[in-house]
Simulated scan of single mutants.
Amino acid sequence: MTAAARPLPRAQAGRRSTRRRLFWLAAGLALLALLCALSVAVGTRDVGGNDIAAALRGRVDTIARAAVAARIPRTVLAALAGAALGVAGAVMQGVTRNPLADPGILGVNMGASLAVAVAVAFFGISSAQAYVWVAVAGAGATAVFVYAVGSLGRGGPTPLKLALAGVATSVAFVSLVLAVMLSHSEVAGGLQSWQIGGVGGATFARMVHVLPFLAAGFAISLGCARKLNSLALGDDMAAGLGERVAPARGLAALGAVLLCGATTAICGPIAFVGLMVPHLCRLLVGVDHRWLLPFSALAGACLLIASDIAGRLIARPSELDVGIVTAFVGAPFFIWIVRRARVREL
C-alpha cells in the first residue's frame, strides 16, 4: 500500500460515520414531530385532526379545541425543558468526566428548588422573572458547593466523590424544602405541586421569561463543544493542546447552570433526563461533543414529551406529572450505569 492510499480507509470511515449520524438525526427529528402531534392529540380527551387544525387557526369554540390550545404550549415547554436538561447533563458529564453526572444527581436542580422555596416563603417573590433569577443563582451556588466538597481529600474531585457529594446535598436540600413548606402553610400547596416537576399548566406568557436564559445556556454549551472534547483527554493533555482548562471548565459549567436553573424555575426539579440522554446518544453518535450536544437536545426533547404523554395515559382520566415518570424510568437506568461503570473503579 502506498502512502497516498493509506488515508483512504480513514476517510471512508469518516463518511460512513457522518452518514450514520445524519440518519439518526433525521430519525430523531421525525420522532420528535410524531411525539409533538401525539402530545397535542392525546390526553383526557382525544381530539382529531380537524379540531387541531381549527385550534391552530385560533378557533377554540369547543372543548376539544380548547384542550388543543392548552396542550400546544405544554408540548413546547416539554420540548424546551427536555432539550435543556439533556444538554446540561452532557455538559456536566464532560466537565466532571463523570458518567454519573446529572443535574439531579449532583444536586443542582434541588439547589435551584431550595432557592425558589426560600424566596417564595421568606421574601414573597411571585413574578416569573424573579423565579428564574433566584433558581439560576441557587443552581450556580449548589454546583460550586458540590464541586468544592467533592474536591476535598486525596485524589481531588473523583467521579465517585462528586456523585456522593451531590446525592448527599440533594437529600439535605429536599429536607430543607420540606421544612420550609411545613413552616409556611400559606405557600405549601403551590410549592408541593411545583416540587414534583411537571409541564402542566404551561403558557407562552410564562415561557417568555425563561427563553433568554435558555438561549444563553444553549449558546454557551454548544460553543464549548470543542473545549469539552479537549477536557475529555485529561487536564494535562488539554493544557498541552493549548486549552485553558479552568476557564473552559467554568464557562461550560455556566451554560449547564443556566439551563438547569431556567428549567427548574418553570417546571420544577425533573431528575434523570440529563443522566439517561447523553449515554443513549453516545451509543448513536459517539463521544464527539460537537455531535453529542445537539443530539442530546433532540433526544431530551423526545424523552420528556414521551414521558408527558405516558403520564397522561397511565393515570387516565387524571395524569402523572412528568417528574414522576422520569423518576420511574431513570432510577433503574442509574443502577445499570453504576453496575456497568463498576463504581469501585470510578
Rank of each mutant, 00 (worst) to 15 (best):
M1T: 08
M1D: 13
A3Y: 10
A5F: 14
G14I: 00
R16V: 05
S17P: 14
R21C: 15
G28N: 05
G28Q: 03
L34S: 11
A37D: 03
A41H: 10
V42R: 12
D46F: 12
D46W: 12
D46K: 10
D46G: 06
I52S: 08
I52W: 12
A54N: 08
A54M: 09
A66Q: 11
A67E: 13
R71V: 03
I72G: 00
I72L: 01
R74I: 14
V76D: 14
L77W: 13
L80P: 11
G82S: 06
L85A: 01
G86M: 02
V87C: 02
V91W: 06
A101W: 09
A101T: 13
I105T: 14
L106C: 04
N109D: 12
L114Q: 01
A115V: 06
V118W: 02
V118D: 04
V118F: 03
A119N: 05
F122W: 13
I125N: 00
S127Y: 11
A128S: 14
Q129H: 12
A135F: 10
A137W: 05
A139L: 03
A141M: 11
T142W: 09
A143N: 15
Y147F: 15
R154V: 03
P157K: 02
T158Y: 06
L160R: 09
K161Y: 13
V174P: 15
S175N: 02
L176G: 05
L176S: 06
L178D: 14
A179R: 04
S183Y: 10
V187Y: 07
A188G: 11
A188Q: 12
S193C: 12
S193E: 15
W194A: 00
W194N: 00
W194Y: 02
G200I: 07
G201I: 09
G201A: 05
A202Y: 08
T203L: 08
F204H: 03
M207Q: 08
V208N: 10
L214C: 13
A215W: 01
A216C: 01
A216S: 00
A216P: 00
F218P: 15
I220M: 13
S221Y: 04
A225G: 04
S230N: 15
L233E: 12
A238R: 07
A239V: 01
G242M: 06
E243S: 09
R244H: 05
R249K: 08
G250K: 14
L251E: 08
A253V: 15
G255E: 06
L258K: 07
G261P: 12
T263A: 01
A265M: 07
A271Y: 11
M276P: 00
C281I: 03
R282P: 12
L284C: 04
V285R: 02
G286V: 08
R290M: 07
R290C: 03
R290Q: 15
R290L: 06
W291V: 01
S296I: 04
A299P: 05
A299Q: 05
L304A: 02
L304E: 05
D308Q: 14
D308C: 10
L313G: 04
E319I: 14
V325K: 14
V329R: 13
V338C: 05
